[in-house]
Design a binder for these strands. Structure first.
Lengths: 209, 209
DNA sequence: ACTCAATCTGACCTAGGGGTCAAGTTGGTG
DNA sequence: CACCAACTTGACCCCTAGGTCAGATTGAGT
């Protein structure tokens, strides 16, 4: 790779990470190129697709932060505190960083590394949930799919409120958490979804056809 | 108004109500014209704007249904049952009818009659909430703004899940309701929003710039 | 049946995003 | 320093959606 290409790739990565974190993973690629000060043709030359760019620029960032949250959640003594910590921190991350919000929420089938991170994070979430359920503090009818829907809707709310009321999401999450405690549980009106269904719904929630 | 114009207006209203209820209030106007079998120019001639079309076609429908739900909620003896009924039924309506979902959610400043319906419905919701709070069954820190956010996020989830899992929204709403009971309440991490903030956020939640 | 205003149509304009590629520019090697 | 492959550019294509308007058409009054 020639030196100028190297430089341009670096400028593009920097611009991409900025814009992704400001406005989410769907920012127009042309705008990234504009901020980087290169032609959008160059962006396509060097990366080929949005997914490839995301894979290079966002994945490690997201992986690191999500792993850390799961780790700290599991490190807490009380299972409920760990569960609540996990949900709150992930939601906070979503509110603060639209890029990560989209990682949690959106399905990008083209971004392989990103999908791997999602899977790992999902597995960690499952551990947090199971621990809380075994301890009898989290309602037993709560599933990983329900967790994803919480994140999915929180992502949308937090983004919508980012300017006008940056903490608005906290109230919704708090209500939800109070409803997830084992002692608050009343029977659910509908059974759990298959992971196929969850996948479908998450895709559409984030703007698929 | 000439007879052919009358006929076309009728065809357009019929097509609009169909498409609005199938896919929400943002369906392309050209598609409505196509289904009505007229040119989109005619649609602009006869109605002028999307808001005007909505005002003619959706408002009464929505008003009637929303009023009925509020009425029946208030007719119930137990305040909690009434509150839960109200939320469940509105959310169900959102799941079943994307047009009404958008009425509840979206701000259409151009549609005067629609805004009036929203206000009336909002006032009815306030009565349901207050009654439940006075009875001590609904947590006292719950506000009308929180209710709108529930509807706003439910609208998005229900629409995303419409095909793959038509009842998915029920679980989320049930968790939420369990968290809204007075006896489930733990202190909230953030204070209530001003109505200005709620208005802003709802606007963006439904896709404003 | 004639006339003309009311009405309809569809080509055309805007703006925006995704994506491609011929032609021009330039890094770096012999 | 000359040369060529690597690289960059921006004009161009696609599409979707909103919106306008000159000219063709047609309802209905006489």
């Amino acid at each position: 790779m020639r030196a100028d290409a190297q430089r341009n790739a670096e400028k593009l990565r920097a611009a991409a990470v900025e814009l992704f974190r400001e406005r989410g993973l769907q920012v127009p690629l042309k705008e990234i190129a504009r901020r980087a000060g290169v032609s959008h043709g160059t962006l396509y030359n060097l990366f080929g697709s949005r997914e490839a760019l995301i894979d290079e620029v966002v994945v490690d960032l997201a992986a690191h932060r999500l792993d850390r949250i799961a780790e700290q959640a599991l490190a807490r003594d009380d299972a409920w505190g760990g569960f609540a910590y996990y949900i709150e921190k992930v939601c906070e991350l979503q509110a603060v960083d639209p890029a990560i919000s989209d990682v949690v929420t959106r399905r990008f089938p083209g971004a392989e590394r990103l999908m791997a991170v999602c899977d790992r994070s999902y597995a960690a979430a499952a551990r947090v949930i199971e621990r809380a359920q075994r301890a009898g503090v989290l309602r037993p009818d709560f599933t990983r799919g329900d967790l994803l829907f919480i994140f999915g809707t929180n992502a949308l709310l937090a983004r919508a409120a980012a300017d006008a009321a940056p903490d608005a999401w906290r109230r919704g999450v708090a209500f939800m958490l109070d409803g997830l405690r084992a002692e608050a549980a009343h029977p659910l009106p509908a059974g759990p979804l298959t992971s196929r269904q969850v996948y479908e719904v998450m895709g559409r929630l984030a703007g698929a056809p």
